[in-house]
Design a protein around this nucleic acid. Structure first.
Lengths: 357, 357
DNA sequence: TTGTACGCGTTATCAC
DNA sequence: GTGATAACGCGTACAA
């Protein structure tokens, strides 16, 4: 069945062709040039002429042909965004804010995932260039040199997000990933923790994970502490892998009394591992995340995390790209603050439960 | 600052223009027609010529101009998708599967949200038509007549998802939303529940919510039970609103012993309300969701839910649209199964805790 | 097997 | 303020 199904096609022969600017011009008694002027809000057109053209366009249900417009004007009014993943709402909220803002400005969003594979990212960027997007949003500072070459050749705006390029090589909008984990680590140390573990995404090609690991190490170093390599687990991002990684940390010698996860997904996976192992959170194990997602906030106990400005990033990126395309003023580097959100998943370590109030 | 920042522009004067098919043709010593033939995998081309053209294309870093190609061929290799929201991973996984499959087939995804506003959906569809997408994916069966008119005029394939059109008016890929809640309701009734509440999204323009409400009512009716209007709450989709709705149900006279939420977000919001009110789940209140998300699965207790085939839908939709565009065989209506997933959030009602084993 | 030449639907550049 | 016309970069009939 179904091979021949053709949806709701109009009766054969009645193939009403889509009407073009020419048809509108004819009906309005003007030239296509004037139709174009009206549709592009040129000021140089008589109000009455404008009205007639708009009426004709409405009557004919005229929809401009984007490809022709793009070919001629060199502007597609499409923005390309390549994010690591839609899963777990980590990047979804940024993307949502981006799309909404772009829509308000009359731009469409062409979106793709690279699943944490930077080679895929480069390949997809090529596809989007071929589709003629006017500008790009990328996540993170780490990208293949080939990608930067592509973008350079293309000569259109792009912005890196979720981090701010310390060398200021490329426009970027984000926050201090290092500060995020530095904050949670200080919080844990203040609670009395001395053996703190790390549950992280693989570092390769992931500047966010790298910076977040550094934040923890920096806080530890300030207090003369170190990060025991046996208390570190690197896993691809998923609840299941995070759970497995945490299970290993739980079995490690001198196991840590607290674990810093580089994002909420890892942290929740860690909580799952603790539940399965019968390790009480926070009494026997404190856990922290980053990104302050609903997933973490709704756990029992609630996950202590760091709120990251994911919505601001999306909005600011849309604003920047549109400004660059339309000649408005723009800031090449923007950094938004992060904020520690304390919930029930962190407490003094077992030995100090009474001592520290 | 920043107004004059210009990214990494090449030195003035050296404006190396993007090379076109003409440049490739020249370098390869052939005509543009041959270049086109090579790039479109036409069989009628000498292997040696092909090699020379490909070499030239590589050397010049030739990227075909999509708009020109679209204008000429009437195919953009872009698919438009309009989903209610990226939040809460409800539609994100379908979108992810869709994008991945489309990418494999050489299509790009143009994505937008309508935030549960069907007028916005119609407006955005117009934008995407203007951008020249080859086909559409929409979520749900409910849409404005104006949208269907637009699509009819446009004459390109579209598919409705997350439901199967019972009247078979439009190709659709989904599952039986009614069955999802019917299953959980039967489960609750079997546990001994007789007063069951409903926590739902507003029904207007949301066929999924409507069908899910009907599933509950049908199961109740089969057992001579009814749905007390005081035990029903409609809220827009968010954790906070769901929590507020559940708080009302908790305060209702003869409050229900179980609540069926039309998706996991509502269900988790309901669990939050119970925690705040000191109502124990499942001892004093059973709660069920739909969609079997990580958000629900990781709660304490785990949320009893219904697994919906969100990934299958995305993949199947991509396959169907591509098949329709490329003349392959396709099924206009596809329904995937749902499956009840029992976790700790459901148990016999208080009075029956001992009785029912 | 390959080249020539035209046209896709719009916008930009000129004239008027 | 408006119209005629030439591009934009590619695909394809047709000729060779």
């Amino acid at each position: 069945m179904g091979t021949e199904h053709s949806g709701s096609k109009r009766p054969a022969g009645a193939a009403k062709a889509r009407s073009g600017a020419k048809d509108v011009a004819q009906l309005a008694g003007v030239s296509t040039a004037t139709v174009s002027r009206v549709l592009n809000n040129s000021q140089q057109v008589d109000p009455d002429t404008r009205r007639r053209v708009l009426e004709a366009a409405t009557k004919l249900r005229y929809v401009p042909h984007g490809a022709a417009r793009t070919l001629r004007s060199h502007r597609s009014r499409m923005i390309g965004a390549i994010v690591p993943s839609f899963d777990y709402a980590l990047y979804a909220r940024t993307t949502s804010a981006l799309q909404q803002r772009l829509d308000e400005r009359g731009y469409a969003l062409v979106l793709a995932e690279h699943h944490y594979d930077l080679a895929v990212e480069t390949r997809i960027a090529g596809q989007l260039i071929e589709r003629g997007v006017d500008a790009f949003l990328l996540v993170g500072l780490d990208h293949e040199q080939a990608l930067f070459s592509l973008l350079e050749d293309y000569g259109r705006p792009f912005v890196l997000t979720w981090g701010v390029d310390p060398l200021q090589r490329h426009p970027s909008i984000g926050f201090d990933n290092r500060a995020a984990t530095y904050e949670v680590a200080r919080h844990l140390i203040a609670l009395g923790h001395r053996r703190i573990g790390l549950l992280s995404a693989p570092l390769s090609g992931n500047d966010r994970a790298r910076a977040r690991g550094e934040g923890l190490r920096a806080a530890l170093a300030e207090h003369g502490l170190g990060l025991d390599p046996r208390h570190v687990a690197y896993e691809p991002i998923s609840l299941a892998t995070a759970e497995a990684g945490m299970a290993r940390l739980l079995a490690a010698p001198d196991r840590p009394t607290a674990v810093v996860a580089t994002n909420d997904v890892f942290a929740v996976g860690a909580m799952l591992a603790c539940r399965k192992a019968g390790v009480r959170v926070p009494q026997e194990m404190s856990i922290t995340g980053v990104d302050n997602t609903d997933l973490g906030a709704t756990q029992t106990p609630g996950l202590t995390s760091v709120a990251t400005p994911v919505v601001d990033i999306g909005r600011a990126a849309a604003d920047q790209l549109v400004a660059r395309l339309e000649g408005g003023p723009w800031e090449p580097f923007q950094q938004f603050p992060v904020q520690l959100v304390q919930r029930g998943s962190t407490a003094p370590p077992a030995g100090l439960q009474r001592a520290a109030g």
